[in-house]
């Protein structure tokens, strides 16, 4: 009973936030609604006793990805009027695509495959059961090779992305602290003894 109330609260919040993301006019508001959507889905995962996934979702998506997202959205000057141009013209096509997508998704994850009679309710685990350990065992034991390959692919992507942004021009005036700290007084300052002007 209590769990159902919590579920419907989070589910309602998720649907509300999700629809606000695509309908609000202000892009910053949209990004913040996306944050709310992530939070609600994290709450739903917690109800399924998937605490690692729930916290990782908040940690990675809310704590890092959306911060950078907001960062960019705030600095961009998005012209919404231009984005909304031709809304009426493209609406029929968009609606058609949307309906086809909905039907496709509905048939795949619908009652035929994932109905309540097809999937048993997850058995409640004892309170000392942590799925962090279980996930770790699976990732680093059973699936170690796929995991390592994915890690290498990700590493290559990171290095490539950083290499693309490295554009050192000759105009760079940025000082190098590791060289700054090596500066000695003798290299910079020359004390000159100047005799006082002689009165003639």
């Amino acid at each position: 009973m209590f769990e159902q109330i919590v579920f419907y609260c989070f589910a309602g919040m998720l649907i509300f936030a999700g629809s606000m993301v695509i309908t609000v006019r202000n892009p910053v508001h949209a990004a913040l609604f996306l944050v709310l959507a992530f939070f609600s889905s994290a709450g739903l995962w917690l109800l399924l006793e998937a605490e690692f996934l729930a916290i990782a979702l908040v940690l990675v998506y809310v704590g890092a990805v959306m911060v950078l997202f907001l960062f960019v959205v705030m600095m961009l000057d998005i012209n919404l009027a231009a984005l909304r141009e031709g809304f009426a013209r493209y609406f029929p096509v968009a609606a058609l695509v949307a309906i086809v997508m909905m039907v496709a998704v509905g048939t795949v994850v619908g009652r035929a495959n994932f109905g309540l009679d097809k999937v048993a309710a997850p058995t409640p685990r004892p309170s000392d059961y942590g799925n962090t350990t279980e996930l770790g065992r699976a990732l680093y034991g059973e699936y170690i090779w796929p995991f390592e390959i994915a890690a290498v692919v990700l590493l290559v992507a990171i290095i490539a992305a950083i290499a693309l942004t490295l554009r050192t021009t000759r105009q760079t005036k940025a000082p190098k602290p590791e060289r700054q700290v090596l500066v000695r007084r003798e290299d910079r300052v020359r004390l000159v003894k100047v005799d006082a002007e002689r009165q003639s």
Binding site: V28, F52, A56, L59, V62, G63, M74, D128, G130, T132
Partner: peptide, 25 residues
Amino acid sequence: DINAGLLYILALTSLGVYGIIVAGW
């Protein structure tokens, strides 16, 4: 007394930045 306490701490301390960004904007 949760199992994933350290993760929870990491997740929550990373949320404090929202107050600052939202305030600034």
